[in-house]
Design a protein around this nucleic acid. Structure first.
Lengths: 202, 202, 202, 202
DNA sequence: AATGAATGAGTTTTCATTCAT
DNA sequence: TATGAATGAAAACTCATTCAT
């Protein structure tokens, strides 16, 4: 009784190259919708926003946590890149201290992305998040050591303090009434903790 | 014709006197289940845990936020009481500074109750939460003034700093791996911010 | 554990006189809310609007249909009264024909009260509604006979035609876009059926 | 963590081809249950009757009104078809006048389908229903003009009268005690209004 | 005789997950 | 390999009816 085949849409994103594109489309949409609505957005909405079928989403990210951690991982990719660039540029004596650059980038990320907090919180309960934290630790430790040696930060500041400050910033950002207040409060908190505040420009 | 609303169970908590009891039962269950599972627990589960029908829950708390804020309000009731007792006892010169007592109670609350953070975060977007924050401010300001005068805290510490530190503690607690780590990290953070840490015993 | 008694509200509507008052209050509210929202309004809303407890509503009107028919019955009371007055006034030769007066009153009622239609429709399925229709028939038949004798209406118009026209007017009113259109359409329909239209004034 | 949405039943009506079938199944069930029980039947019952999950119903008809209007639209499809056939057959001089055929079909529909009335009544309050009425008007107008020209209906009968009569028939049908009485009353009303009555046979 | 809180079945609605095509 | 319809459990919400006080 059913008429013809018409299995899927005319111009389907087929093939291995398209698969990778689909994956990033999903990731991009997830990042945006997580940021806008929090971690509870319907996965259906993400797939739709990405312009792919739900099956694609499930193929690449079997669970919601997989998706959340993938977004989180991208943040770390970004941070690593920033760290590499900052280190490369640090031979130029007039450049900002690499640690400061990375730290400001992390604060900026927190500020921009409500879900960054949520993901971190959820992720912490998850073994795989330990790996994520490990990555961050590996990036930050040498920069911190160097910054201490240079004297650009307090010599008593440890990696543990760094993580503590980062986590404290979560609380400040996530309970802020608005973006401007959040900026001011973060700057304030960092001053009290002896760490660099946010960069001038957004 | 009407099919809904069959008779109710044999021996129920009826009458105006029971109403208040039922309300507290709901609140008690909500507090516990929010703390255990977060703000997303099914309202049905709360009603069941409280041993009441869903209608009771909806009668007293039309929306989930109403319930969350009621729990939050109870926290503030508790804090006010602690503040009053601490103030009353402060004539005894050997007593702990009232501000310290209250502050430690707030940290302890944060530590004990995952949902305290969540509620605070959600509540911040809500006008009614401003009133709640107002309550806290009114309680804390005089204690803080007195503590500054006495010299038990840094003379530069403002009420804004107090809220900032409280919000920072949210981040630290909510991203902690376990209770022991949370304790240690909170103590650490407070030391760095020049505020009292947690009390020795729980 | 429950505190005091406090069985019911301070100034309760007690006593037999109050009972009658409560009954009419419920009836009054039912008429209004049925008219505004149709027969499906929550009974709770009616009780609340009437300022009585739900128990009172159920005491006087065990089922929704009891309430609906009570409202309908009041309409018939009103019609009977109009009929009696019109008849009494009919000795005055300049007066409007009694049948016309009653008929116009019926049309006006239909026009004013959405629920009038709904009740009639529901009522038809109900044996008790037959009694209601019987009342109307008993009032109208002599007026109609006299009107025919006088020549104020077509001599072929029977009581059955009268009911038919009334029911037809239900359809016209209930599908009207607005009150003005309803008036015009009813007038039109009645003209085509050889019956008096609506009175000039509302 | 997520508890919702367990796997689905073994052999389901999957795929794009089945979607259309499922939609019609829902529509078919809706038509029947609306006709039997009125517009208030539980949507669940419709889905069940159609043999589909509730999701299917919501996918195709987000609101109850969407479903009701879809049923109504189908009626208009049917009427258009009848009109086309009647017009095509009208060259045969012995055939019934096309307008009469269409009009009788409309009366028959009203008679068969309690919900037809209800939907029409509800639909009137709805902008989308105006479009539906527009469709009907476009179909009827030329037929009416021709019927007037031929002399098969009273030359004074306008399109407005047509709609008026249709709406009047709603009232008569919806307040009828039983099918036989409804038939007789409709015939009677139409005679009085100078329009064709019901066809002999159904 | 009145009050109005409580019950809980019935309905609506959402959405994670599967799978025919 | 992708699509997107289908499923159906679960969660949210409503309200007729009862009954302790």
């Amino acid at each position: 009784m059913s008429t013809r085949g018409l299995p899927n849409s005319p111009r389907a994103n087929r093939g291995p190259a398209a698969a990778a594109e689909n994956r990033s489309a999903v990731l991009r949409s997830a990042r945006r919708l997580f940021a806008e609505h929090g971690l509870h957005v319907p996965l259906t909405a993400i797939a739709q926003d990405a312009g792919v079928g739900q099956g694609v989403l499930y193929r690449h990210f079997p669970t919601r946590m997989d998706l959340a951690l993938a977004v989180f991982d991208e943040n770390l990719d970004h941070i690593e890149e920033v760290a590499a660039q900052a280190t490369a540029a640090s031979s130029d004596s007039s450049a900002t201290d690499p640690f400061t650059t990375v730290w400001q980038e992390l604060l900026t990320l927190s500020l921009a992305d409500i879900a960054f907090v949520e993901i971190a919180v959820q992720a912490v309960r998850n073994d795989r998040a330990l790996a994520a934290n490990g990555r961050l630790r590996r990036v930050v430790t040498p920069l911190l050591d160097e910054a201490r040696a240079r004297g650009s930060i307090d010599s008593r500041l440890s990696v543990a303090d760094f993580f503590l400050a980062l986590r404290a910033s979560y609380g400040v950002v996530s309970t802020a009434m608005d973006a401007a207040a959040a900026r001011a409060d973060i700057d304030d908190l960092m001053t009290r903790l002896g760490l660099p505040g946010l960069p001038e420009r957004h």
